[in-house]
Amino acid sequence: MQSLVRGLNVIRSFNARHPRQSLAQVADRTDLARATARRFLLTLVNEGYADTDGSEFWLTPRVLELGYSYMSGLGLPSIAQPRLEQLSRQVGESASMSVLDEDEIVYVNRVPVRRIMTVSITIGTRFPALTTSMGRVLLAFHDAARISQLLKDAELTPLTPHTKTTPQALRAELEQVRSQGFSIVDQELEAGLRSVAAPVYSPTGEVIAAINVSTQSSQYDLTELHDRILTPLLQTARDISADLSAAQLH
């Protein structure tokens, strides 16, 4: 099991900021001895999950196979994609869907219209759940004990001057999201970025995913965000939830 954990840490050390790394960089980012890191990297190369030119290593597209079984079993991304594409066309903005992984959201669908963040968002991109509209939707429907533990353990680092960083403010925000059934995050993740998110329900009534529309603050003020984006977003979330129930019947 320890070897599996170490191997996964080696894979996770590669990301958008570090797509290519030397042996020394991988060892440093994973806290592994160089000999150990080298053994894992060469195993990944031999299995086709990584490649090397002798001085640097990088992942290959085959690593996508590692998540394919989860994605296929979930069924959700393929069901949601047409709805998200329709939503994006309707509002003229990017639409996404994510699921919760501990204290982070993971993007499982993305319909980009334009790049509105300094980082590129793709399938598999992760963000802290507490500072994102989709994350707050996903967290708001957890039980109180889970939320309390998360707020206790979270590193509440301000990402912008608008970021809520106190447990009291975040708890109140999650309570409001649960009550109203959607979340609006105004420039808390990145300056100039506004997003609104809604929950997607499983056939048994659990919140299993969230969808959102993201836009620049210069495009819509908060009133316009409510008027022009919130209604179609909520309808799309209901449609995806209904599609999931219909799919289970078949």
Rank of each mutant, 00 (worst) to 15 (best):
D31W: 12
G7L: 12
N46W: 03
H226M: 12
R136V: 01
R126W: 05
H142W: 03
E102L: 13
S120G: 00
E65W: 09
A172D: 09
V137H: 07
T30A: 11
D103H: 12
S120H: 10
V45E: 11
L66I: 14
P199A: 07
A33H: 15
M97A: 08
R83H: 14
G7H: 08
T157P: 04
V108D: 03
A144Q: 13
S96V: 00
L42M: 14
T60G: 06
R171D: 10
G124P: 03
S94A: 11
A33I: 07
S148V: 04
L41W: 05
G54C: 05
A210V: 09
R178P: 00
V119G: 00
A154V: 06
H250R: 15
V113T: 10
A169P: 01
Q25V: 12
L130S: 02
N15E: 01
L59A: 08
E104T: 06
P203I: 05
R83E: 12
P203T: 02
T236G: 05
Q21E: 04
Q2E: 15
D227N: 14
M71P: 02
S245T: 11
T43I: 08
R115T: 08
L159C: 02
L189F: 10
E56G: 02
A145H: 10
T231N: 09
T166G: 11
F57G: 06
A24I: 00
T160E: 02
L244G: 02
S3P: 01
I105K: 08
I208V: 15
R146H: 12
E155V: 13
N15A: 00
H226R: 14
A191S: 14
V45F: 08
R110P: 01
A197T: 01
M117E: 02
L64W: 12
L76K: 06
S133K: 04
I79P: 01
I184L: 15
D221Y: 05
K152A: 13
L159Y: 13
G67T: 09
M1Q: 13
I105C: 00
P128C: 06
D186G: 04
S241Q: 04
L32T: 11
V106N: 03
V91M: 07
A140H: 01
R6W: 06
A50K: 06
A172E: 13
L87T: 10
P158G: 03
K164S: 08
D53I: 04
A191M: 11
S202P: 08
R29Y: 12
R136S: 07
L138M: 03
S22I: 09
V10R: 05
A209G: 07
S88F: 09
E104R: 15
M97P: 03
